[in-house]
Design a binder for these strands. Sequence first.
DNA 1: TCGCGTTATGTTCTACAATATATAACGGTG
DNA 2: CACCGTTATATATTGTAGAACATAACGCGA
Lengths: 123, 123
Amino acid sequence: MRYPGLTLRILGSGNPAMGPGKAELISRIEATGSISAAAREMDMSYRRAWQLVQSINTSFSEPVVVTAIGGKRGGGASVTDYGRALVAQFHAMEDKASAAIADDLAQIAKQLRNSVVKRKSRL
Amino acid sequence: MRYPGLTLRILGSGNPAMGPGKAELISRIEATGSISAAAREMDMSYRRAWQLVQSINTSFSEPVVVTAIGGKRGGGASVTDYGRALVAQFHAMEDKASAAIADDLAQIAKQLRNSVVKRKSRL
DNA sequence: TCGCGTTATGTTCTACAATATATAACGGTG
DNA sequence: CACCGTTATATATTGTAGAACATAACGCGA
């Protein structure tokens, strides 16, 4: 389930440490076992994806994504248990925040010219 | 009270219709009675501030900021009752969302290398 | 009528984010 | 050993958001 109408970002040192984009990147790394594959899926340059992984790993005191160079598949990346828990918690937080303001959101949505709640076309 | 550790944005048509920046801009327009003064206070170009006001006004079905050209002060801008209510509601939503995830936030903050909760220096 | 501060808007410039491109190192496999 | 796909990283290019700059219109007050 996505969370239309709301965007949540958690901050570390003033800069976003976790948000929807990073959470999705981690999930895709977990699914594909590769930073580059995840980047391709998200139409993102490998460099950027790698930098985001760097950012994530240095933001938290425990590693979220671990990587390996070389090997049968040329190398790869995997998500730690900690990382999985982190993403799960982030989504849980999205849920909670979304639920907490659901009423307001619904009310405001009615006052929006083209609410994402009504139309999901990006145009 | 600010809301460290969290950023909330509400979306209309996929694009942010309201967020911390726009909320602050509206408040400063209300305080100063002028888009340009508010822009100066926020170290923002007048053009950008004006564009944000445009964006806000077209996002919602009712005007949030109304303007006047010419006159004793050269013109000016004021916030409608609707706009005031909107900003108040947005801050209330920040409060609710913040409260809903406060526990998670506190827990995650401990795992951040340099949490904004611990240090508020921007560097 | 002129000047002032503002809104309103167009045009140009710039800083920065993201991409694109290139290259090296790695370690399995054929 | 050569090859492959990956991580890792440096450098160059591009796209674009925002700033800077310019200008017009407005309406009041001196």
